[in-house]
Design a binder for these strands. Structure first.
Lengths: 227, 227
DNA sequence: TTCCGCAACATTGTCGACAATCGGAGTTCT
DNA sequence: AGAACTCCGATTGTCGACAATGTTGCGGAA
């Protein structure tokens, strides 16, 4: 995978990664209070590095800190997710537009190969998960890289995709949107291959809007079940 | 001003704000090494809170940290600024599109009033600075607020605008772009008043592209002078 | 009974000291 | 002379203890 960060630096960095992992996978529930002393002990470190990690996660929007009252795991309610997908639409649309002029033919071909692999995996798993899987994120991240825009890559990579993964862990059981998603990916690659940035941006934005509609419906169902 | 943060919380927050201010105004030069002990003493606090502040500033992209080697003020080279303006174009374009459907008539009217004030100030100051001034940022921030998208507001407010202000302090002496900028702002307000989100987005994107071209030329001149 | 205040507890915020690591000056070997 | 090695000072990373702040539950008064 291209999104994980195996290299281990300071304790604060390690704590940051471990916490991010726990939050994304749902091991730490949304809204859960994060006790500094407890976490520090669990990770075998002092509270200093852990506090720095919390600051970092706050910047990544994975936790919300309230002065003198501690940190809690962020809660992905409907509004927050809606906002997230809107921002993604803007950023990935732009990335896609630029990628159409900046990516090499080789990179675009690799992107196509990636989709072939995904398709095989889908058939093997009988349409289990795709738009919910890491393969999808790889596709999007490769396009972000294609923009050659470091800030764009940072924003999409280190913040947004973590939140997306978090959202997916929460709602992964349901949701079958693999076929339309794969088809849309193919269209996007076509536009990139034709160096049509405007079309590529349009398609990417539509793709993300579609993903949001799918997630949104899923949230509706869940709310009805819960109620 | 709507962008400053007068409320004082923990020492780390105070340090963060003071450092951000010093960096944005150029009091701390770009690329300058930030010594923890020295800064902690200057601010009259321990190194703990200061380190947390540095983590926070790293998240805001105002400083760059290298493990075991300290933190330095970010350097806004041509590529970084180019990336920044591209991201801004995407985000503010989206904000503008949504604002066209979400802002109240009253808010749009206030926006228009804001421009009137700016115009007066320009005439008084004989076209001194505008696209370089905080008035411009106010305009953009009001539109971000109009999107009703908290994530968008956070990104534009706490990160991007700080970098923009930093860029402006660096290049404020030159650059006269007040008239076209004001005119473009007026066009945008018109589109908002007509509830034409698509046009508003287009105009905002052009406006930011124009701003980047202006900044870019300025950087070119500076480089020639320096060389 | 219910609401308010107060006190004891739990948690966060801060500091100073110690350990680990990095960069550089001086030295030595080829 | 140039390059690499080594040691030393400086700086960052980490920890444990203390202070400040929030929270909780108990008891008393209306």
């Amino acid at each position: 995978m291209l999104l994980d960060t195996p290299q281990q630096g300071t304790l604060a960095d390690i704590a940051s990664r471990r916490l991010a992992q726990s939050i994304v996978t749902g091991e730490l529930a949304q809204g859960q209070k994060l006790n500094e002393a407890e976490l520090a002990e669990r990770f075998g470190m002092g509270r200093g590095p852990l506090r720095e990690a919390l600051r970092h996660l706050e910047g990544m929007r994975l936790v919300k800190r309230i002065p003198n009252a501690g940190a809690r795991v962020v809660v992905l309610d409907r509004k927050t997710l809606s906002d997230l997908y809107t921002v993604r639409e803007a950023l990935e649309g732009m990335a896609c537009r630029i990628a159409a002029t900046q990516m090499s033919d080789d990179e675009i071909a690799q992107l196509s190969t990636l989709l072939d692999q995904d398709e095989k995996q889908i058939q093997k798993q009988a349409g289990k998960v795709y738009a919910q899987s890491e393969g999808d994120l790889d596709f999007h991240y490769q396009i972000a890289r294609g923009s050659r825009n470091q800030m764009l890559m940072d924003m999409l990579g280190s913040e947004q995709y973590q939140l997306l993964r978090m959202c997916r862990y929460r709602t992964s059981r349901n949701a079958q949107r693999t076929q339309p998603a794969l088809s849309q990916h193919r269209q996007i690659v076509n536009a990139l291959a034709n160096r049509d940035g405007e079309l590529a941006e349009l398609l990417m934005r539509r793709h993300i809007q579609g993903a949001w509609r799918s997630i949104s419906e899923m949230i509706d169902k869940e709310e009805k079940e819960t109620a």
